[in-house]
Amino acid sequence: MITIPYKHKMAAHCESGSITSLLNNAGLDITEPMVFGISSGIFFGYFHKMKSFPFPTFIVRNKPGKMRENLTKRAGIKFHTYTFKDPEKGRQMLNRLLEQNIPTAAQVDFFYMDYIPSWERVHINVHFIVVVGLNTYHYLVSDSYFPELVSLKTESLNTARFAGGNMSPKGFLFHPEFIPKDIDYEKAIIKGIKKSCFNMLKIPIPFLGVKGIRLFAKKIIEWPSLARDTEHLSHEIMKINILLEDQGTGGGGFRFMFATFLQQAAGMINEPELLDFSKKMMEIGDGWREFSLLAARFGKNRDLGPERMKELSEKLMDRAQVEQQFFSQLYKTIK
């Protein structure tokens, strides 16, 4: 039986949370919003038709894995990473790392995390947990979405690490390898902000960034024609609330976490203008939350006629407008 001493803490998001928790436990004092901001976590993408999704959906953060990669590029923190073709080798490596007392993050299919209530669990291959112990039948797991350390059946973790499908984890593992003594936070923060602005404004793809929010606004009108029935439409409309509030965003589709990052950054790099941006971003997040609560209410009341869809669409157009303005101003200020 192995139990690595590990300070578990809930976090808003699984990837930024597991990275932060690994770094904190390795002795680096860094917050989740700082990890999120430096790694340009904030984003938007709308997917109207994709092979992997049975219904249109959207994302509010950058591509899974990018947070870790960007943190390495910008703050010099190196992680040891592993992927496996053979599940047995993947299992052995995780156990070996635990035997060496190395808390190790694993990419998994969220569906098999059976300590999470069933209504939350969906097949999504990009959940991150930190494994901190092992006995004959269970792993000991630190999951940002759960208040305390939990046991997970070895069989469940092995299945979750090697689930197939879109963004299959392939047994992916990582742990910190090198943490610089003096991180140049100023450089890392500025780079993180610039890239966030670029991602929101300048990617020449019509469904990404602010353009993606506008596309979502246009396409949500079509959602009723794509649903099986009213209950299905209600479910999908209410899922907007899950994606913006519950699915590890820290609320308001990560906008509250980004506001917190800007506030912390203002103090760290002595850039008071960032405080104003931080306040504006908090207000933008409030607008997203208002939108998501409205969607939940419409869904619950089955109030899903064309007028309501139009109302949601207008709210989204408004979000696109304010974010366009915000990121344009931020880009000019930080340049």
Partner: peptide
């Protein structure tokens, strides 16, 4: 209590 989350707030 069944589903706890972290929100960033003022």
């Amino acid at each position: 209590p069944e589903q706890q989350v972290i929100l960033y707030v003022e």
